[in-house]
């Protein structure tokens, strides 16, 4: 029975990425969690991020992750960062991406979504809304 379920899962995975998956955690250190529906989830490499998740790090925390459109994030200590919107069509390589930095530090290398249409990738801070038009930058929001 278990084997049959695994085979079925495998068949589904061949057709498309895991349902709702938007990014994978590559590395996490120290105090680092994902908050989802009121629960605080522990991270390990390969952890699948979903839209609406909030990434939280403590004093010694760090998280690295890569999104389905090849965007890459590095999150520093004492951060609270939410992915409010991530829609990506792998076939047309277009989409919409909105990240909100409540506080903390975030290094970004933008990917396909930022390339697909002007300001399709946005970053919100408590004082501003940014339209990402390319490549590598750091946003810091002191607590």
């Amino acid at each position: 029975m278990r084997r049959a379920i695994l085979t079925l899962l495998g068949a589904l995975l061949i057709a498309q990425p895991a349902f709702g998956e938007i990014a994978r955690i590559k590395r996490s250190m120290g105090n680092a969690t994902v908050q989802r529906d009121g629960a605080s989830l522990t991270l390990q490499p390969g952890f699948l991020l979903l839209t609406g998740d909030t990434l939280v790090t403590g004093k010694d925390g760090q998280i690295s992750l890569t999104f389905a459109d090849d965007s890459r994030f590095s999150i520093g200590p004492d951060s609270h960062i939410s992915v409010d919107r991530f829609e990506y069509n792998a076939r047309s390589q277009t989409g919409e991406f909105v990240t909100r930095i409540n506080h903390g530090s975030l290094a970004i290398v933008s990917g396909q979504i930022a390339r697909s249409k002007q300001d399709a990738m946005k970053v919100r801070t408590p004082t501003s809304l940014l339209g990402v038009r390319g490549t590598r930058f750091i946003v810091e929001v002191p607590q």
């Binding site: 809304l129 940014l130 490549t135 590598r136 930058f137 750091i138 810091e140």
Partner: peptide, 25 residues
């Protein structure tokens, strides 16, 4: 020292990029 800020760097391939400020305050 206190407000949100942005550091814009060259891409890993040394290319030009930019960030638009669509809204502030």
């Amino acid at each position: 020292a206190t407000g949100p800020s942005l550091i814009l760097l060259t891409s890993e391939e040394g290319k030009q990029g930019s960030v638009a400020v669509l809204e502030h305050d």
